[in-house]
Simulated assay, not measured.
Amino acid sequence: MVVETTVGLGEGKHVEASVPAYVTGTRVEALAELERRARASAPEHPRSPRRRRLLRRTDGFLLVVDGVWQSYVTRFTVAEPVEDSTAPEAKPLVERFDDGVPVRPAWPGRPGPG
């Protein structure tokens, strides 16, 4: 997954990209994990958000946060790695409840897996 976000202020405003995680599994599973991250995202700018919009795209999500003077964008994209000279070992997805809490270990007051 790739995250591109607007950073900086004024004329120093620019976009930075990162690859926060590698996900093994289906495209649907990768998009579900990406959506979870997009919903939980709290960008540094704007410091005084007035409006937050999360939009679904075919390859991921677009988060648009309007501030007092400017809008800031974060793009969350599912992409298949083709080459990475120092790729970390892929980790399997963690099964989660709708609110993001992991299914395992068993949590008090929640149904078990299955």
Rank of each mutant, 00 (worst) to 15 (best):
D99P: 04
A40V: 04
V2L: 12
L63C: 06
G100S: 07
W69G: 06
P113L: 08
T77A: 14
A90K: 00
G114L: 05
E4S: 11
V64N: 04
Y22H: 07
D66S: 14
Q70I: 04
P92T: 10
T77S: 14
L55W: 06
R47F: 01
D99E: 05
T5M: 01
E80Y: 13
R75P: 00
D66T: 08
R47A: 14
A32N: 02
A40P: 01
Y22I: 02
G67A: 07
A32C: 00
V65S: 01
R52W: 08
L62V: 14
A38T: 05
T26I: 09
G112N: 01
P49T: 07
G100L: 06
L62T: 14
L34P: 02
T26P: 01
E89F: 06
V15M: 12
P20G: 08
D99K: 03
R53K: 15
K13C: 02
Q70H: 11
D66K: 04
G114D: 06
A106Y: 12
G8K: 04
V23Q: 09
E29W: 03
G12V: 00
S48H: 07
M1D: 10
S41H: 15
V28T: 15
A17S: 13
R56N: 06
R50N: 10
L31Q: 04
P49N: 11
P102N: 11
R96G: 07
E44P: 00
L34K: 05
G100R: 06
P105I: 04
R110K: 15
R53D: 15
G8N: 05
T24D: 04
K91R: 14
L34W: 05
G112H: 00
T86W: 15
A42C: 00
S18K: 10
M1Y: 13
G12D: 15
P113S: 09
P92H: 13
L54K: 09
V2M: 12
V94K: 11
R51I: 03
R50H: 12
R110Q: 11
V15A: 09
V78A: 15
P102H: 07
V103H: 03
V82G: 11
G12S: 13
G112D: 03
A30L: 03
A40H: 10
G10D: 12
A87T: 06
T58Y: 11
D66A: 14
S41V: 07
T58Q: 13
A21E: 07
P46A: 08
T74F: 03
L63Y: 09
G10R: 06
D66N: 04
F76M: 02
G114R: 09
G60W: 02
E44F: 04
R27K: 10
P105S: 10
A30C: 11
F97L: 03
P49M: 05
K91P: 00
S48W: 04
R39D: 09
S41C: 14
E89V: 13
